[in-house]
Design a protein around this nucleic acid. Structure first.
Lengths: 231, 231
DNA sequence: CCGTTAAGGCGACTAAAATCGCGTTAGCGC
DNA sequence: GCGCTAACGCGATTTTAGTCGCCTTAACGG
């Protein structure tokens, strides 16, 4: 089992060639791992990280957060338990790093031509992602882990800083179109628009549908037009 | 240590008298514990529950959620570990029950004379409670536990159903005063008003101040007046 | 009162999580 | 190529979490 997973991954990475020269996607992923004092972030280390985080994600999607344990990830990834504890410290570290890697994608907010349309679409995507067992399990698990682990909390914070920054363009477009009465705080507007979705999913644990997603978007637009987010 | 705690608790409870007759406050607390099939919810059982939940709360406040373990609660309460596992199943059960007991208070929403005032005050109280290490640690911990434990999720859901129901009077008063253009969904309005506080505290992990609490209240009022929550 | 029996106490037991020391491998600079 | 050494593999060990069987205690009904 452990060999199988290991081999499988090795063949995923690079079929059969020298490991060094044309590493560019790997370098990008690796650069982030380089911290002051850390050395040798080369090929193997990167492969181990990829294998471990992939295993973390698939284990999470398959058996849920409650069953996510270092031993499971070790078995799935073919990486030794001790290595995982050394590099990540525990499940919270795994989740934090998985989220950091997930943030390295090319996600872009929707563009429908209107502020309300964009925000509604954003909330629907958000809802779909968070309820999706594959993508959504990671943010959800990190939200939970953040209560116990400062590292997870920091990763979560950074993740949403980045996501909301990427969404800022929605508000900029709306202002350019003259849909808003003045210069508003885009971050603020976006956070208000999305907050109800998170709130019902993870705090009150209500059932959430697209109607709520739309209503939240509408409420934020109404508040913005009333001047609540005006700078 | 275990004897010390045990003795201390015994003397706290009832100095030196017969245990049975004049139990009324205890009875009230106990009545809830009586479930179909459960029997003998009498004095000792109630005392054990009180001791265990008190220990859970103080341990949580003192050392945080990460350090909250059954062994710690057992030691603090003077109740044996096995008993706790039998009755509560684990930390998630402890938290769920602690939240259920906490819900049995006489909490009332603020009454300032205006809708905006009430919602602002509500959000400020909410923020203060959630950041307070004593009161606030329980909801926070249960929110986290709910990701792994259906029981905690159910307790959380029920808790907020009840809290928002108690707040409904805020919106009713506002409608009676004519502050709202039509009949609005009070629950909806209240959830929108409070969602941003939870969102920043537990999802984005931003720093939260009273200015945000007020802004969230204002945004909800603006949305309500624009007809977003109209039934 | 007194018998019945839930509920709790107790400590040993099993299982799982986490750590450690040491040998091996493979990046990286030369 | 070729050392050097960071990073990983490995199995044993320690620590912590959770379970079990048996005995004791004390509610509750009569």
């Amino acid at each position: 089992m452990s060999r199988l997973t290991s081999d499988q991954h090795a063949s995923d990475q690079r079929a059969s060639s020298r490991p060094a020269p044309e590493a560019s996607a790997v370098d990008a992923a690796v650069a982030r791992h380089r911290r002051p004092g850390s050395q040798r972030p080369g090929g193997r280390t990167a492969r181990v990280r990829a294998a471990v985080l992939d295993a973390t994600l698939s284990a999470l999607a398959e058996h849920g957060y409650a069953a996510l344990t270092v031993d499971v990830v070790a078995a799935r990834s073919g990486v030794h338990k001790a290595t995982i504890y050394r590099r990540w410290g525990g499940v919270d570290g795994l989740l934090a790093d998985a989220l950091e890697r997930a943030a390295q994608d090319d996600w872009r907010p929707p563009d429908t031509g209107s502020l309300t349309g964009d925000l509604r679409a954003l909330n629907r995507v958000l809802l779909a992602d968070l309820t999706d067992p594959h993508q959504g399990a990671v943010p959800a698990a990190v939200i939970s882990a953040a209560f116990q682990s400062p590292r997870a909390a920091e990763a979560l914070h950074a993740f949403y800083i980045d996501r909301y920054r990427r969404c800022a363009v929605i508000v900029e477009r709306a202002m350019a179109r003259g849909e808003l009465p003045a210069v508003v705080d885009g971050d603020e507007l976006l956070r208000f628009a999305t907050a109800p979705v998170f709130h019902r999913l993870f705090i009150t644990r209500d059932v959430v549908d697209t109607a709520l997603a739309d209503r939240a978007a509408d409420a934020a637009v109404a508040a913005a037009q009333a001047g609540v987010f005006t700078l």
